[in-house]
Design a protein around this nucleic acid. Structure first.
Length: 791
DNA sequence: GCAAGGTC
């Protein structure tokens, strides 16, 4: 049998492939159940079936449709089934594959594309009527040259690559479905109120919750700045060249010294700076810029998709920020010349050479987003117009010239102190003229000469305050998700929309709702990676290994299921507690201190093994911590986050001080004593079920490395591993009186310990003076605070 | 009524 069947990922790509391979002589065939394109070359007939992404969807067998706690383990242990969701593609593949001797997979050249291709092959193989060659075409752009090259140099299908995508698919479903069902059932939130958990959505919610907690527990610090207005032609302002002052009286003293005195120029420099033009749009950058002009990511993507299917812009889902050489940029500018951007397009064309900017990311799947056609008058709605204009202006500005500005800086001495001044002026706006979404303000600064005396006025001290971190807005949240590799260019906006629709987050900038807060708190009550971005990072690692053939898909999915079963077991044990925590059960507790913002009492409410710390003012502090022990107030505030410090008293153990904020570094830095020698995780101080403290690996249940700890004395971090067995060393004792030891009881250093007690003491003294690890975390937090001047 | 990933 001759004849070839080509399979494309989407209609648009299919049309272009058929067009180029047939020199424009292809025919679209469509009937009730079939959809394909037919064409011929000199010797063969071709059929092309365009897909629409995945043809099948995985699901659980129908008998597991009901949500029940008792069947969760069965759910995890069962095999998934595949449901066809694109019936037309299914029928077209089965019927056309009967008549051909060769199949060429021409889906997008990436992991999901490979899986989509093998889904099609599975369908064909199951029909049992195809016995021929199967090949893969690899192209990086939908241009004539790329496509023809790809089809004359076909390669083999990469089954390892598609297996890696399949593992992702299954792991996401097992974890997502099992945990979603568990949390919904445990809290009795069913029907449309269900609580969803997922590898991407939950860590994203976690980011938002964490940020909100940082804001809640932020303690502003005052600082003072000394400023002078200098006058030459106009006013320009000098700032005291010294670290910002934390001491008002010192600022006042400096002010006394300079008051009424003019300035003398110590140095002056003037330089031209380039204003770099922006890089071509990828999906993330496009959504960020759109949200700055008031079109939120989901809406921006919907509009972009609609512009794309109408042929006005290129494919909107792309990571690429470099125009391929094959794109005829100039011809597009010429099209734009006949649009409302006539002036801007002419500016671009008037250049001797058009040199496009390049972004950091260069991928082969799709081009960056750019306009491909000019819309007819009245064709677009208002928002669509706005988005199209953004894309078109961005495109033109990447082809125009860079801007330049002149920057001036001076050091000016007044009353024995040096003040810094600076200003800048745009000399040539360049691309800024085409791209009005970016504005650069001029700041006046005159020309000066060294030794020149400048008149001064308005000597003053301005008070400022450190600011908490900003909430995420749509733009920065999408960017952060991209940084952490959470989701893909095509899914990030959907995930955010899900979190909104399910009532976990609200507003822009985004805040967690009480439900969002308590869901994350509930999840954190049990050790699992599900609320952390690490889960994705680990999955990515495993996928890479599957793709390279190092491990099998089956083994990865199997071990992930085993881990999930252990997590479910742990969840089951804590079911009531989680239910209460998530539902925000109201119980009365004991006051442990006063809120430093509202002055209202903060209560410690005991719910089984968990303590809820809640401020009486609603919407303020509300933390959950798993603590087995008694809570005593201390009247101290946390040196890191300013919240209340309480004492935990456990039977047989030295009391421990903790910050009521579970995420505070005050707690986490003390708990983390070093690196696990087994798998590189963190060895954390934990409490066993029987009330004993011990060291356990943060990767539990995957890693079961533990060490026993002495129950008496404070435990401090040494920051070094044992030379003999690599376990992290710890410092145990009371105050200054402590000793360094290896927690590994079977380590050879412990065998000698009793014998050489005297030498050991000497070692201890030295390391004790070095052990300031817990302090550094506090100062780190401070330096992270943003400084913003007032006025 | 579950996830995340394709695409429309």
């Amino acid at each position: 049998m001759s004849g070839t069947l080509i399979i494309s990922e989407k209609a648009d790509a299919g049309r272009r492939i058929a067009y180029f391979l047939s020199d424009g002589k292809s025919k679209q065939k469509r009937s009730k159940n079939l959809n394909y394109i037919e064409f011929e070359d000199s010797k063969d007939g071709f059929y092309l079936v365009p897909l629409s992404g995945h043809i099948v969807e995985i699901d659980f067998p129908p008998k597991l449709k009901d949500w029940k706690l008792e069947t969760l383990n069965t759910l995890v242990e069962s095999e998934v089934i595949h449901n066809v969701k694109n019936k037309t593609a299914y029928e077209s593949l089965r019927s056309l594959s009967e008549n051909v001797g060769k199949i060429i997979i021409a889906t997008d050249y990436d992991r999901e594309g490979e899986l989509i291709g093998t889904e099609a092959l599975d369908i064909i193989k199951k029909s049992g009527k195809f016995r021929g060659d199967i090949k893969r075409a690899k192209f990086s752009a939908l241009t004539g040259k790329e496509i023809r090259d790809a089809f004359s140099n076909v390669i083999d299908v990469d089954y390892n690559l598609s297996s890696s995508a399949e593992a992702r698919e299954e792991i996401d479903l097992y974890w997502g479905a099992a945990l979603t069902r568990f949390f919904s059932l445990a809290t009795n939130r069913l029907g449309k109120n269900f609580l969803s958990i997922g590898r991407v959505q939950t860590p994203t919610l976690g980011l938002i919750v964490k940020r909100e907690r940082e804001i809640q527990s932020f303690v502003p610090e005052k600082f003072w700045e000394v400023k002078i207005d200098y006058v030459k032609d106009d006013i320009f302002t000098g700032l005291l060249k010294e670290d910002r002052l934390n001491d008002q009286s010192k600022a006042q003293k400096i002010l006394d010294m300079i008051l009424g005195k003019d300035g003398k120029v110590l140095s002056f420099r003037k330089e031209m700076e380039r204003i770099y033009k922006p890089s071509p749009f990828n999906t993330t950058e496009f959504m960020r810029e759109a949200s700055k002009i008031g079109v939120m990511p989901s809406r921006a993507m919907k509009i972009a998709e609609s512009l794309y299917v109408r042929g006005l812009i290129s494919y909107p889902r792309t990571d690429n920020t470099v125009y391929q050489r094959s794109i005829n940029l100039k011809s597009i500018v010429e099209k734009l010349k006949k649009s409302f951007l006539e002036k801007e397009a002419s500016m671009v064309l008037s250049q001797e050479r058009i040199l496009p900017s390049r972004g950091k990311m260069e991928t082969t799947d799709h081009p960056p987003i750019y306009p491909t056609e000019v819309p007819k008058q009245g064709m677009l709605k208002k928002d669509e117009e706005k988005v199209y204009e953004l894309i078109a202006r961005r495109f033109l500005s990447t082809l125009y010239k860079e801007g330049t500005r002149e920057a001036r800086h001076a050091d000016i001495e007044t009353g024995g102190y040096t003040f810094e001044t600076s200003g800048s002026k745009v000399v040539d706006p360049g691309w800024l003229e085409i791209y009005p979404y970016r504005k650069i303000r001029d700041v006046f600064h005159p020309d000066l000469e060294v030794g020149e005396i400048v008149k001064a006025e308005n000597w003053r001290v301005e008070e400022g305050e450190t600011k908490p971190p900003n909430r995420y807005d749509m733009a920065s949240l999408i960017k952060q998700m991209e940084n952490l590799n959470l989701g893909t260019k095509s899914t990030r906006h959907d995930i955010i929309e899900k979190l909104q629709n399910r009532g976990f987050i609200e507003g822009n900038p985004v805040r967690p709702t009480p439900l969002g807060f308590s869901l994350i708190d509930g999840i954190m009550l049990v050790d699992s990676k599900i609320s952390e971005p690490d889960m994705t990072a680990e999955l990515e690692n495993m996928m890479t290994k599957i793709a390279s053939g190092e491990v099998t898909e089956k083994s990865v999915v199997e071990s992930s299921k085993q881990m999930l079963l252990r997590v479910l077991d742990e969840l089951e044990k804590n079911k009531d507690l989680i239910a209460k925590s998530v539902r925000g059960a109201l119980e009365t507790g004991a006051e442990v201190g006063k809120c430093r913002i509202h002055g209202t009492p903060i209560q410690a409410i005991k719910i089984k093994d968990t303590i809820r710390f809640k401020c009486d003012t609603d919407g303020c502090v509300d933390y959950y911590q798993k603590i087995r022990g008694l809570i005593k107030p201390t009247e101290e505030n946390c040196e890191v986050c300013g919240n209340i410090i309480v004492q935990v008293i456990r039977r047989g153990q030295t009391p421990e001080k903790i910050c009521i904020n579970p995420l505070c570094e005050y707690n986490t830095s003390k708990k983390d004593v070093g690196i696990c020698p087994k798998d590189g995780g963190h060895m954390l101080i934990r409490q066993s079920r029987y009330g004993k403290r011990f060291l356990g690996c943060s990767n539990f249940p995957k890693c079961t490395q533990t060490y026993a700890l002495p129950q008496k004395g404070e435990i401090k971090v040494v920051g070094k591993a044992c030379e003999s067995c690599k376990a992290p060393l710890i410092l145990v004792g009371f105050g200054e009186n402590n000793r360094e030891l290896c927690p590994n009881l079977s380590c050879e250093t412990n065998a000698n310990r009793k014998a050489s007690k005297t030498t050991e003491k000497k070692v201890v003294r030295k390391s004790a003076s070095k052990s300031k690890t817990s302090k550094t975390s506090a100062s780190k937090t401070k330096s992270r605070k943003k400084v913003k001047s007032v006025g």
